[in-house]
Design a protein around this nucleic acid. Structure first.
Length: 369
RNA sequence: GUGGGUAUAGCGCAGUUGGUUAACGUGCCAGAUUGUGACUCUGGAGACCAUGGGUUCGAGUCCCAUUACUCACC
């Protein structure tokens, strides 16, 4: 097998882990935050920028690349890594979440999902087999099972039905996944019902060879509820592989997630809010486009080591955002992503020192959520 | 010089045959954003309807004058 995971350290205070995940495109130290590059690009950033801010792995997306430019074109280009000039690991989401977020356009059956392209409107039918085949062609290192992400507020009966289809789909994904250079992560669903969550974990374990994902969280529920679900799932999760909490990534969620034994997270939040003029800081969000920064000639954060903070002022960034200049979103994305990779580095240090819970408490004391 | 047209938020404009708190876009101000359909979404402030008269129960809407801008012709 071309993948393995070693736990290097377990924090005595929280049980959070430090580990190394070996992949065909290099090692990933966990815990890790993964920037999202849906359309084979982290919006506005070059691979060099991502490396400079210590991004070890990035996400891309099956649904989007399937519709455009098409998996065959990416395969012809020599695979996603070569196509986008990124030689570190890539994880592709299966498109399950798009089925959920583009709900208006889709029809789910046990066989698969019929949906209309948001680009052309033409009809497509996605199945677990197809989702794996596309990801094989893309050549990402970590591939995700095709799943159904149920809605917050769904009844137990609805959630159970989605979970059961997800289980069947996982079986089918596994049956066709043959590529040894790609690791298939099952996705635990089960909505906000603990009995379903526990059953989903058991459904996933036989198929979890070197990694397991938690899906269906951060879909509109209170954060406390998400943390509670994580706490209750935790004892049932396998220890010997990375645990990936999908789609979660504000600074406070990173802390809370890692402290609950999560090893991998991804989120569009840092890059999305960046494009809309907001920066992460040690003390909470800074809406850099606000008038109060018009004559503020300090960097976003004095002690930040990112390219943006080393060279640009709040006033300039505000100007760029207000003027609709693309550089504004790019520079803020660099800062926000660096903020999360740096926070992850600090958390790792606290894990080594067996003081993650102390660190979390100190951090959140000065952090406005 | 002669004749015509237009004056409504910072800017661009809508306001039906005169009828309750003057619409929209943009800009401004502020919120939101968590496996990206995202330079997006949601709110808010901002107008003595060019000025002065007049008609009318009632005028941004009709009449007169003034001013500014603008077009055509000489």
């Amino acid at each position: 097998m071309n993948f393995s995971y070693e736990v290097k350290k377990v924090c005595k205070q929280s049980g959070a882990r430090i580990g190394v995940f070996h992949t065909p495109h290099g090692d990933i130290e966990t815990p890790v935050f993964m920037p999202v590059g849906t359309q084979a690009t982290v919006k506005g950033l070059r691979p060099e920028d991502l490396k400079e801010l210590n991004a070890q792995i990035i996400l891309s997306n099956t649904y989007h690349l399937y519709l455009r430019p098409g998996a065959d074109i990416v395969a012809k280009a020599g695979g996603l890594h070569k196509f986008m000039n990124w030689d570190r690991p890539i994880l592709t989401d299966s498109g399950g979440f798009q089925v959920f977020s583009l709900a208006k356009l889709r029809k789910i059956s046990p066989d698969g999902v019929e949906f209309s392209s948001h680009i052309s409107g033409e009809k497509h039918f996605m199945t677990p087999e197809k989702a794996i085949d596309i990801q094989n062609k893309l050549g990402s290192d970590i591939i995700m099972a095709f799943d159904i992400c149920s809605n917050y507020g769904d009844s137990h009966k609805e959630a159970e039905k989605s979970a059961e289809i997800t289980r069947q789909w996982l079986e089918r994904c596994y049956a066709v996944q043959k590529n040894e250079n790609q690791m298939l992560f099952p996705i635990i669903q089960g909505n906000f019902y603990m009995d379903l969550r526990k059953k989903c974990i058991q459904d996933c374990i036989p198929y979890a060879k070197c990694g397991i994902a938690i899906g269906g969280l951060s879909v509109g529920e209170p954060k406390e509820l998400m943390y509670k679900i994580l706490d209750e799932m935790r004892p049932d999760l396998p220890e010997n592989m990375p645990r990936y909490l999908m789609g979660v990534g504000s600074p406070d969620c990173l802390l809370e997630g890692y402290a609950r034994g999560i090893d991998m997270m991804d989120c569009v939040l840092p890059t999305r809010i960046a494009r809309n003029g907001t920066a992460f800081t040690r003390h909470g969000k800074l809406v850099i486009k606000n008038a109060e920064f018009a004559e503020d000639f300090r960097p976003i954060e004095d002690d930040c080591d990112c390219y943006t903070c080393k060279h640009y002022t709040r006033a300039y960034l505000r100007h760029l955002i207000k003027a609709g200049e693309m550089l504004g979103g790019e520079l803020l994305s660099i800062h926000n992503l660096r903020h999360l990779t740096k926070l992850t580095e600090q958390i790792k240090q606290a894990i080594w020192e067996d003081r993650l819970l102390d660190f979390k408490e100190e951090y959140l004391k000065d952090y406005k959520i």
